[in-house]
Design a protein around this nucleic acid. Structure first.
Lengths: 364, 364
DNA sequence: TCTCTAAAAGAGACCGGTCTCTTGTTGATT
DNA sequence: AATCAACAAGAGACCGGTCTCTTTTAGAGA
C-alpha cells in the first residue's frame, strides 16, 4: 500500500527567498503582504516568485492565522430550489466579503447533520450556517457555539439557542394562506409536509421538531379552528420526504372518502408532485381542488392555472444570514439578532370555491 | 487594528497526550488511527480525548499528509437546475468515497473561473471538477494539471486537454431534436443560447467557445441545411444570459417580420422565459410556435402542453465525473477517459406543424 | 567624525498534526 | 540462563506559512 502520493513538490516561500537572495522572513513579508520591506527587495522577491510560479499554500496560512476564510453551510437538500436559491444568496454575500463557502447536505437527517458539522469544525471553517433539521438534539450546535466559532441559523429558529437567526413569519403567513382557502369556502384543507414523526401520523404539535413547519401547522390549525372546522389535524399529512412518498400520500388523500377540497403544500417540491397526481387523476385545479404552496418556484407561474404561492424571500434569507455571520466574523461582539423577513402571497389561479360535488363532512 | 482574533485555544494531541501520560507520538497514533499501540494505552488515550472533547484539526492533518479530502467544483451557475442536479450527483459520489466538496460559481465568466481555480488550488483540494466556460483560455486548467492535481471536465470537453471528461453527444442529440422539428414541417427554427460572442450576433461556429453549445449549434445547422433551409444561422440567438436578456431576445424574435415557427432552447432556464413570453403574447404552444428544450427540468412536464425535452442524464453526468476523478485520486495512473453518456428525447406536447398563418421566407 | 535612533532584514519559534528513527520491554528459542 | 527478535513507546524533525525578537544598516543630529 503506497501511502505517499506522487506529490509534486510545490514552490514555498523558502524557495522564493533562496532565489531572491533574501531571508525566508523577508520573502514571507512580501508574499504575505504584511510587515515592511524596501521597494528594491520587494521587486526582487516578486520577480523571483513570478519566475518560480509561486502559489501560496492557503492551508499552511490558515494553520498559523487560525482563519480559513471559509464559511461552512449545512442545508437540508441542495436540490430543493428553496435551498439552492438560499445558497446562492449565501455565496454571493460570502464572495463579496472575501469568504468562500463549503457546502454540505444533511438530507434532513440529524446524524448526517451532526457528522457534517463535526467535519466542518475539523476543517476549521470560520463560521457556520445551518438549517437545523431538528430542535430536539442540538448538542452539536451548542458545540459550535462553545468552540468559539460563530453560528447562524437559516429558515429555522431554535428558541434554546441564542444565535443570529433569519427566518420568515411562518405562523403568520400560514394563517394568511389558510384564510384565503377558508374564505373561498373550503372546510377540508390538507397540509402536506416532508417532516415526519413517529407513527407517520399527526397527533399534535409536540411531534414536530422543525420549527418552521411547526409554526406553519400551528397557524394553519388556528385559522381552521377559528373557522369552526372540526378536528382539522385530520388533514395534516407528514412524511412527504421524496416524490415517491409524496405520491403515496397524495394518492391516499385523494382517493379517500373524505377527500380534501384544498391543499396547502409545505414546499414546492411537494406541490409539484401533488399537482402531477391531481392531473393524472383527471381532476382540475381549482375546480376540483385548490392548491397553495410555500415557495415561488419557477414552475408555479407557468402551469395552467398558475399556482397561488407564498413568496418567501429566499435569496434575501440566504444573503442576510450570511451577512449577519460575516459581521460577527469581522469583529464587534453584539447580541444575537433574530431577523424575521417579510413574506407575501402571490394570488394566482389555483384557488377557487370548493367543488360542489364534494361530500359534506363525514365521521371517520 | 486587532489582527489576532479571540481564538479559543483548542485541544491538541499534546494536550491529550499529557492527560493520558503518554508521549505526543503515541497519542497521535491512537487519535490518527495509524501505527501500532497496545490496547491498554489506547483505552487511556481514548478516554482522555473524550474527557477533553478533542477534535482533530483537519487543517494541520492536511498540511502534513498533503491530502485535504476535498474536491473542488467550479460550475457556471448553481441556481441553474442543470448544475444543481449535477452537483448533487458529484456530492453523492464524493461522500460515498469519503470526500467533501467545495463549490464555486463562475457565473460563466472566465476571469471568475480563473480566480476560483487559483483559490481552490491554494486550498490544496485533492482534485478539481470544472465546467470550463471557454475553450480559448485554458491556461489555468493546464496549471492544475501541471500542479499534479487531477482535473476532470463536466459537460464540456476541451480537445486540447487530455483529461477525464464526461459529456453527452451534444451534436447528435441536437440533430435529433432539430429533425423532429424539421419533420413536423418547420423551416424557421430558432436556436437560443446563453453563450455570447463579440457583436452578440452569430456568424460562424468559430465564435463559440463553449464546446457543448458549439456542438449543438453545429448539429442544428447541419440538419437545417440538409433540409434545404436557407441560411439557418440567421435564427441563432446568442446572449440569453439572464431571464431579462432572454426576454429581450424572445421579444425581438417573436415580433420580427420573420418570426420563427419553432424554438430550440439551449437550457431550461431560457426555455422557461421563452415560454412565458410566448404566453404573454397570446401565442399558443404548439399551434403558433413549437418548443423543444435541453434539460428535463421539473416544470417541463406540468405545463399545458408539456414540453418536449432533451433528457440529459444530468445526475449521472455529475456522479460519473466525480467517480472518474476519485478513481484517479485513489491511485493507479490510467489514460484519460472521455465518457459520452447516452441521451434521449421525451416527446411530449410542445411540437406541432408550423402555423399556417406564418409568412413564407422573406429576404432580410 | 561620532553617537543615537528608526527602519529594514534576518533568525528562529510556532501552529497541530504525521512520521521516521531510536530506545526500551517483553517473550520465545536454544 | 543467555540471546535475539518482535513489538511498544518515546524523541524530535517536518509540512509551509506567520510573527516575534534580534541584529544590521542607514540617516539625522551634534
Amino acid at each position: 500500500m503506497k501511502r505517499t502520493a506522487p506529490k509534486t513538490p510545490s514552490i514555498t516561500v523558502s524557495d522564493v527567498a533562496r532565489a531572491a537572495n533574501v531571508s525566508k522572513a523577508t520573502a514571507a513579508r512580501v508574499l504575505g503582504g504584511y510587515g515592511v520591506v524596501s521597494d528594491t527587495i520587494r521587486a526582487d522577491v516578486v520577480a523571483a516568485a513570478k519566475a518560480l510560479d509561486y502559489r501560496p499554500n492557503e492551508l499552511a496560512r490558515s494553520m498559523t492565522t487560525g482563519r480559513s476564510g471559509i464559511i461552512g453551510v449545512v442545508v437540508g437538500d441542495i436540490e430543493n430550489p428553496f435551498f439552492s436559491l438560499a445558497v446562492r444568496g449565501i455565496s454571493d454575500a460570502a464572495r463579496a466579503a472575501g469568504f468562500n463557502v463549503i457546502l454540505a447536505n444533511s438530507g434532513e437527517r440529524i446524524e448526517v447533520e451532526k457528522a457534517a458539522v463535526r467535519l466542518l469544525i475539523g476543517k476549521r471553517v470560520d463560521g457556520l450556517i445551518v438549517t437545523p433539521s431538528e430542535s430536539r438534539d442540538i448538542s452539536h450546535l451548542r458545540d459550535i457555539h462553545r468552540s468559539g466559532r460563530p453560528l447562524a441559523l437559516l429558515d429555522r429558529a431554535l428558541p434554546d439557542l441564542d444565535v443570529d437567526t433569519v427566518t420568515v413569519d411562518d405562523r403568520g403567513i400560514a394563517m394568511r394562506a389558510t384564510r384565503i382557502l377558508v374564505d373561498a369556502g373550503h372546510r377540508k384543507i390538507a397540509y402536506v409536509t416532508a417532516v415526519d414523526a413517529e407513527g407517520h401520523e399527526y397527533r399534535d404539535l409536540g411531534q414536530i421538531y422543525t420549527s418552521s413547519v411547526r409554526e406553519r401547522i400551528d397557524g394553519y390549525l388556528t385559522v381552521c379552528r377559528d373557522a369552526g372546522i372540526d378536528r382539522p389535524e385530520r388533514y395534516v399529512r407528514l412524511g412527504a420526504t421524496s416524490p415517491a412518498e409524496t405520491r403515496r400520500a397524495a394518492d391516499e388523500m385523494l382517493s379517500g372518502p373524505d377527500r380534501p377540497t384544498a391543499v396547502l403544500a409545505s414546499d414546492s417540491v411537494i406541490a409539484l408532485e401533488i399537482f402531477r397526481v391531481i392531473r393524472e387523476r383527471g381532476l382540475r385545479v381549482p375546480e376540483d381542488i385548490s392548491l397553495i404552496t410555500f415557495h415561488d418556484a419557477d414552475w408555479t407561474s407557468v402551469t395552467t392555472p398558475p399556482i397561488t404561492v407564498i413568496d418567501q424571500p429566499v435569496y434575501a434569507l440566504g444573503k442576510s444570514v450570511a451577512e449577519l455571520l460575516i459581521r460577527r466574523l469581522k469583529g464587534e461582539p453584539r447580541p444575537a439578532e433574530r431577523l424575521i423577513l417579510p413574506t407575501s402571497i402571490f394570488e394566482r389561479g389555483s384557488v377557487g370555491p370548493p367543488s360542489s360535488t364534494s361530500r359534506s363532512l363525514v365521521r371517520r
